[in-house]
């Protein structure tokens, strides 16, 4: 359900762009998805396939997904570490004073269009 909502917005963003730039056909869409964005890529691809045929501009568009690794910053020892492996607690100093630097985004990197 979460993925469906995001695909709806992706399609709308691309439709708007197509209108703005007089694009008739989009060949591919490259998305950058953060490791901890909560997006399941399999579901996302299914939703995309279901959705794209309903948008003339997107009909033959291929979805390319790139993963952005999640990185957390530790405020206590001023180091970074991979989020997925260690979670909220810093593996070096065991502080909980940490915050996510990147990895929860979902960004349209580029499209191929004509």
């Amino acid at each position: 359900m979460h993925e469906m909502g995001i695909v709806t917005h992706l399609a709308k963003t691309l439709d708007d762009l197509a209108k703005e730039q007089s694009i008739t056909k989009i060949g591919s869409v490259t998305l950058q998805v953060g490791e901890v964005s909560g997006i399941m890529t399999d579901y996302f691809t299914d939703c995309w396939d279901y959705f794209k045929v309903r948008h003339p501009v997107l009909k033959s568009a291929e979805l390319k997904l790139e993963t952005i690794p999640a990185v957390t910053w530790c405020d206590h020892c001023k180091r970074t570490y991979p989020t997925v492996e260690h979670g909220r607690e810093c593996p070096y100093c065991h502080s909980g004073e940490t915050w996510l630097l990147k990895g929860n985004e979902c960004v349209i990197k580029e499209i191929e269009a004509e």
Partner: peptide
């Protein structure tokens, strides 16, 4: 086909 770089959040239209 040309490549258009966007670097825009998926939810940009909603924003």
């Amino acid at each position: 086909m040309k490549i258009i770089e966007l670097h825009e959040s998926v939810t940009a239209s909603n924003d």
